[in-house]
Design a binder for these strands. Structure first.
Lengths: 253, 253
DNA sequence: CGACATTTTGATGAAGATCAAACTGGGTGG
DNA sequence: CCACCCAGTTTGATCTTCATCAAAATGTCG
């Protein structure tokens, strides 16, 4: 159950496919050659497995390499002196932890796992390649766009809309890296975590989820999300995927 | 009263000091040589004066140059289909409109003036200089950090804390570019604009401002902000300026 | 099985929204 | 200089959404 031990223990070589989701993600933005992909996989210095509900990065900790999600869900968050927590973003497979860390040498928020996660580390020098450098910049722009959308979500939308919007967003992001199965996907967030994300109480999240279920829009059970009527869900939650910058087959609903 | 006409009319040469606030801002992050500063001023292609409450950039509009605020307040915002508006950031003198525009060729939100504004445009090629390129990257990181802080503000803080936090933030930002006068500064936002920023109703903003006034923390009158007790204001609003990345004399309270 | 986290349900309370109207104050034109 | 206008501010009354508190039900995993 000890995190450090667990990480070391799991730092076995992960198959060559460890960056596959990352490549899928990146190729929504730029094209990489086979040679570039192979070279990049070769630079992976470290892989780690982290158990669920475990802190990976503490705010301000030095972090020069770029870490990439291989599998699992993690979240960025900040704590307030009152003990309240605001989750400011999710990391899904293929996402980079924080592109800024490669410049600033640290991350200005905490990152913790939601489900069990595997990560890979790319050393800074591996990121200088032109195509990849551009892609990372665009990925960072995207983080930005998502945070702004969350601000709008929390600021202007009702509980029902907020939940619907987050579920749409996550579904689209997972679909973009090939992690959906029809209209289903993994969704390991507890209602308490949803609450910390959407600035609602977990009780209200619960009641709103039931409302969505009774409206036959979606079911969220056993860490699995099934969206029964995506267009309707997008409609009631005001979700427009264009800010996610996904390539066409995934862009449209 | 017509904006386009007004812009053309005002597109006179603005004195060589037009980037002074921008340089003050940038030099919190990197050092520029005199030569670099002179060269940069020489590349300014356009200056404009825009009247108050006027849209400058509409979402998606092409915008390749980097525009910089010379004077005045402007805001970034997005509209929802319901007609509600969320302001997602403010631009004060010395700020760049949107660093991403120089890469993406467009801005993904609207920008409008709050008070009358002057802006300068720097063509893309002028930004390749190494020191400045780094600075722009850091400025972009900063936009990020501010947006995340706003998400926390709207998500987790009470009306009183939210208003106090925004006022502290703005005061610090203005002080960093030499636009404060003791514990006073210009603050041209209406209560309705504060409401759209903080996700509150303007009625509630009004009542909360009075509460702050009665608590002898600050006065906001005639578009002018006077913070009577900055440490106390920071304290009640949970404001920690470190995310603004300002150099030391302005860093501490 | 038993401990523990998570979900569900109920009852009550509070922060802030909404609606409506009066008041203020600066700017304009006569 | 005054009358007027319009935007913004202030005040009051009422309503809604969501938070909080508490406890029961369900599920999970060693």
């Amino acid at each position: 159950m000890d995190g450090t031990a667990m990480r070391q223990q799991c730092a076995r070589a992960i198959a060559t496919g460890c960056l596959d989701r990352f490549f899928l993600r990146v190729e929504h933005l730029v094209s990489l050659s086979d040679a570039e992909r192979v070279a990049l996989v070769a630079t992976v210095t470290n892989t780690a497995c982290i158990p669920p509900h475990h802190e990976i990065i503490r705010q301000g900790e030095p972090a020069e390499a770029l870490r990439v999600m291989i599998s699992g869900f993690a979240c960025r968050y900040k704590m307030l002196p009152t003990g309240r927590r605001q989750i400011i973003g999710y990391l899904v497979p293929g996402d980079a932890f924080d592109v800024r860390a490669t410049v600033l040498g640290m991350i200005d928020h905490n990152i913790g796992t939601v489900s069990a996660c595997e990560t890979a580390s790319l050393p800074r020098h591996a990121l200088l390649d032109h195509g990849l450098r551009d892609a990372l910049r665009l990925l960072h722009f995207l983080d930005n766009a998502i945070t702004a959308e969350w601000l709008i979500n929390v600021g202007q939308r009702s509980a029902l809309e907020r939940i619907g919007h987050l579920l749409c967003e996550t579904f689209f992001r997972l679909r973009a890296v090939g992690l959906t199965d029809g209209n289903e996907c993994d969704f390991p967030l507890s209602q308490g975590e949803l609450a910390d994300t959407l600035a609602l109480s977990s009780v209200h999240v619960n009641r709103t989820l039931m409302e969505l279920r009774h409206g036959r829009l979606l079911t969220l059970r056993n860490r699995r999300l099934l969206i029964s009527d995506l267009p309707a869900l997008q409609d009631i939650s005001g979700f427009d995927p264009s800010y996610l910058q996904l390539r066409s087959p995934y862009q449209a609903s």
